[in-house]
Design a protein around this nucleic acid. Structure first.
Length: 980
DNA sequence: TAGAAAACGTA
DNA sequence: GTACGTTTTCTAG
């Protein structure tokens, strides 16, 4: 790098507002996508043209001596701290804009220019600071942006330049916009507020009035101090009442001019771009016109420069798959400085690309003989180099087990193109079992050396790693010291696109999209009793199996990823799915502590209780039988004892479910009650007291569940091995189990749960003002429903009335049927039907919501949540009325349950950063659908609760601003039962 | 010995 | 009436 000259008087500092530029360019310029893969690059093209003009000082004088492109780093800034609603209304970015942000950073680097961003500050603050420093040294400053928030910086040495309108913004233009001189802009904004950034200001005062008032009173403080003198009543009152709000607004809009800069001013000196690197970038972007211009300027033969391998079309070398889709010839530049889209006829829409990829997915048959077994470090290094070259690599690990917290790696596989895949065995064993020491087989790279060779590739921010169910591999790598990033997960892409429509495992995906059936695990390791661990599989067989997995994963990515854009689901994938992989992986790795002694004691107590009950049961039945056998129990109750009121299960057996036994107990029979009690103890003992301790990881001493991201149709997570989302809470006996979930010494558990989130979302989605109002007023929602329906005042309402309303509310969420409600409330179907009728009369909007959802689902085969997640119900049009009705109810429920699931997912993806930002060490351990469990040091409890609550309650924003408030309750205790 | 059915824990 | 996962029993092979 050339030496940077210190800045001196007369220099010209140019600051480009990167984020704002992208946004404006996106809207102002014609859309443009890269020919070969439809990657949206319109803003990137405009940006490159602008930089090129700047660097060549074309029509821009004086020539810049210092230049930086400045970005917003995080949305967490000091402004958010003093006013959490700041910029809270921002809609989600358009999804074809998102990928352009990193590309613009790349472009900046390709031009050898400084790319600046800094944690905790907005780009505006950094620019203000640079401008301040440059000004102090007598330099001229140009800020390339049209953002009005920057206009406060304008003075005789600082000007702005609007890149879209191609015009300068000086003091005169600022006066045009704000009616005041630049130094008063802050005061105007403090009064007028800003709906876009959610700056409150003073109600009833806009820019015009603010300017007028300031002209009269001079400045904000004077105005507020003398507000009493204002004649207009309302204006006077508002200025007095909202004076503090105006001062807060001033804090929000005033740019910080004294940020401790990570990149000093002197370091942003302009250097001439390194021509080849710039050309490599432009070629990768397929900007032919600009490539030619740059090549001409540097007198470089563009044909001799390879496109930047990390940026060119993903997969790139897979020529067969892209045959006919690739040629640069498709680009036809139009006059002007901006690359333009190919003509409409030539253009491949995202949908067309997606269709082409699907059509070609089967074109290259899987050829296992092409796979390579990597046995030397040199060869592995070549594969790693190949990974860098292609920039996109599928990866899969083979291990000794299914638990990523215990399994040991046996080998890994990589794929860089169809049929271009390898397997790297690391820990395969041989020899007879038992007799001799089972040493490692020869021709395997030592584990540590292989991992060291692989690590840089797996962690390189420029190489995309693709996996299928990547959370598993991420954890395996994490335990080996590798933090894999960035990544895509084909399972999750499939889940976003097809939840409810088709399965997301690798084999079904391979069969569906590639028409290929991969080797079964059993074919390599056998099954049943004779099954062997993967580390004893023959290496050639293991290569076929493992390399194929990577190959298939790579191919699936080629097919599925374009569908995300084509079907408009990139945003769902990027915000609700992909970030959760590492969040959940870390939660799983942390695990939770349980009190094994307590569980063991409980197991004994439960056994004793069961023993007592068994004695009573056989006494009453007149014989001993297995109370756990529904068949035997049915025979005893309805055969031998001839108790009336028996029902049959769908298979014709006697039904002995809890509801049946409950009815019999009500009718005065003793035996069913004992059975119910026995079953409760049996459940608690076997599923919890006895099973949980077997899941304690010997190394960590904690229980590590596994969260499945792609298991449900609605977007909820699921938990298994063990399922920690169904720990008892309803009965006193059950809560004893919950008490065995504890925090480590010096810590407590915090449980934070959304109150009534699905009902709140019902009020929101069905747009029911009375329900919304009730939540806004913090009313007892079930009592309010009862009062509306039955005309009973909330004061002194009988418990039974409220209970019925509560059942109805739940029924609505579940897609209500008279049959189900009647069952729930043990009332005749007609009565239940009458309740529903009355409910819909009181809340007609909810009936409309249900009808609309049904109709939509019927027409499209899916429904969408508030955040755009699709839940498919392919059987919604079934001929069978009960199947159809079932799907209709599920679809109605899915919008609510799914929206709630999206919200907590959003909270989870932000939680770790929010806690870190607040300097807290709380660890998120579990998610139970509407509840998050944290483990927190005693001294941080107080500080943690508000952060957690805030993140959860604000989770829908900025994508969706709910009209109904969300409420989160959080408590801390030594165990989960008391925290809940 | 594998898989379905029944039962039951949670939100 | 929605969404899950685990355990035990039962059944078919």
């Amino acid at each position: 790098m050339p030496e940077h000259d210190p800045l001196e008087a007369g220099d010209h500092v140019v600051l480009i507002d990167g984020s704002a530029y992208i946004f404006r360019a996106y809207h102002a310029l014609p859309p443009l996508t890269r020919t070969s893969d439809k990657l949206p690059v319109g803003a990137v093209a405009g940006f490159c043209n602008m930089l090129w003009k700047l660097v060549r000082a074309q029509g821009f004088s004086p020539a810049p001596t210092h230049l930086a492109v400045v970005f917003d780093k995080s949305e967490q800034t000091f402004r958010k701290e003093i006013y959490p609603l700041y910029k809270a209304q921002r809609p989600d970015l358009p999804e074809d804009l998102v990928p352009q942000f990193p590309l613009i950073r790349e472009a900046t680097r390709a031009f050898d220019l400084a790319c600046v961003e800094q944690d905790g500050f907005e780009a505006d603050d950094l620019m203000a600071t640079y401008a301040e420093q440059a000004k102090a040294k007598g330099a001229l400053v140009t800020i390339i942006s049209s953002d009005k928030d920057l206009m406060q910086l304008v003075d005789e040495r600082v000007r702005m330049y609007d890149p879209m309108k191609d015009r300068a913004i000086g003091a005169e233009e600022v006066f045009e916009k704000f009616g005041v001189a630049p130094e008063k802009v802050v005061d105007v904004q403090s009064l007028a507020g800003d709906s876009v950034d959610n700056v409150p200001g003073v109600p009833g005062i806009g820019v015009k009035t603010a300017a007028q008032l300031l002209a009269e009173y001079g400045d904000l403080d004077t105005l507020l101090a003398r507000a009493g003198e204002i004649k207009q009543t309302k204006r006077r009152e508002n200025l007095i009442e909202f004076a503090d709000q105006a001062r807060l607004s001033r804090e929000l809009v005033t740019l910080k001019r004294d940020v401790a800069l990570d990149v000093p001013l002197d370091d942003i000196a302009v250097v001439e771009p390194e021509g080849r690197r710039l050309i490599a970038f432009l070629k990768a972007m397929e900007f032919s016109t600009l490539t030619r211009r740059v090549a001409d300027a540097y007198e470089i033969d563009a044909g001799a420069v390879d496109p930047d391998p990390e940026l060119k079309t993903g997969g790139s070398e897979s020529g067969q798959l892209m045959a006919g889709l690739d040629p640069e010839t498709g680009t036809s530049a139009v006059p002007g400085d901006v690359e333009a889209t190919p003509t409409a006829e030539r253009a491949l829409t995202p949908a067309a690309l997606s269709a082409a990829r699907i059509a070609e997915a089967t074109a290259t048959p899987v050829d296992r003989s092409a796979y390579e077994t990597v046995t030397t470090l040199e060869r592995l290094r070549q594969w790693v180099a190949r990974g860098y070259e292609v920039g996109t690599v599928a990866v899969d690990t083979e291990t000794t087990g299914l638990d990523p917290m215990q399994a040991e790696i046996v080998g890994f596989s990589l794929a860089t193109a169809p049929n271009e895949a390898c397997y790297v065995p690391l820990a395969h064993k041989g020899g007879d079992e038992g007799l001799f020491s089972e040493g490692l087989l020869p021709d395997q790279i030592p584990l540590e050396e292989a991992i060291s060779a692989l690590k840089p590739l797996m962690e390189d921010p420029g190489v995309l790693k693709i996996g299928q169910n990547l959370k598993y591999d991420w954890l395996i790598f994490k335990r080996l010291g590798i933090e894999l990033a960035p990544y895509d997960d084909t399972m999750l892409i499939s889940y976003v696109l097809d939840a409810g429509a088709s399965p997301h495992g690798m084999d079904p995906l391979s069969m569906r999209w590639l028409g290929h059936t991969p080797i079964k695990y059993e074919e390599v390791c056998g099954k049943g009793k004779g099954q062997i661990c993967f580390d004893r599989a023959a290496i050639d067989r293991a290569t076929d199996y493992a390399a194929e997995d990577a190959d298939v994963t790579f191919r699936l990515w080629r097919v599925l990823k374009p569908r995300l854009v084509a079907e408009g689901k990139t945003g769902v994938y990027e915000t609700l799915e992909r970030p959760l992989v590492t969040v959940l992986a870390r939660m799983e790795a942390r695990g939770i502590m349980i009190d094994r002694q307590m569980l063991s004691r409980l197991s004994g107590e439960f056994a004793q209780g069961m023993g007592r009950l068994e004695a009573e049961i056989s006494g009453m039945a007149g014989e001993t039988f297995n109370p756990g056998s529904p068949k035997q129990l049915g025979d005893i109750l309805f055969g031998k004892m001839q108790i009336p009121g028996g029902r049959k299960t769908p298979t014709g057996a006697w039904s002995t479910g809890a509801d049946v036994l409950e009815e019999l107990a009500e009718a005065g029979h003793e035996l069913p009650r004992r059975i119910l009690d026995w079953r409760q103890l049996q459940k608690l003992k076997s599923t919890y007291a006895d099973a949980l301790p077997t899941y304690v990881n010997p190394e960590t001493g904690r229980v590590h569940t596994s969260f499945a991201l792609a298991a449900t149709t609605t977007g909820r997570l699921s938990s298994s091995e063990p399922n920690l989302q169904n720990i008892p809470v309803r009965t006193e006996e059950g809560r004893k189990i919950r008490r065995a979930f504890i925090a480590e010494r010096g810590h407590k558990l915090i449980s934070a749960d959304y109150s009534q989130i699905e009902l709140r979302l019902l009020a929101e989605i069905a747009d029911t003002p009375s329900l919304r109002q009730a939540f806004q007023d913090g009313l007892d929602i079930h009592a309010m429903t009862a009062s509306e329906m039955f005309g009973v005042p909330v004061e002194g309402m009988p418990g039974e009335v409220r209970r019925r309303a509560k059942a109805i509310n739940f029924g609505i969420i579940y897609g209500i049927s008279a049959f189900g409600l009647a069952n729930q409330l043990s009332i005749p179907r007609e009565e239940a039907g009458a309740y529903i009728k009355r409910y819909f009369e009181r809340f007609p909007g909810i009936r409309a919501y249900m009808d609309e959802t049904r109709a939509f689902a019927r027409e499209h085969g899916y429904v969408e949540t508030l955040f755009g997640r699709r839940c498919h119900y392919p059987d919604i049009a079934a001929k069978n009325p009960s199947i159809r009705a079932f799907n209709e109810r599920a679809a109605i429920n899915a919008r609510l349950q799914g929206s709630a699931a999206d919200i907590i997912r959003r909270a989870m993806t932000r939680m770790e950063a929010a806690l870190a930002k607040a300097g807290l060490s709380a660890r998120m351990l579990l998610q139970v659908h509407d509840e998050l469990i944290f483990e927190v040091p005693d001294e941080e409890i107080e500080a943690t609760i508000p952060v957690v609550t805030r993140v959860m309650e604000h989770a829908p924003m900025p994508a969706v601003a709910l009209k109904v408030p969300l409420k989160v309750d959080a408590r801390a205790a030594l165990n989960w039962e008391e925290a809940h």
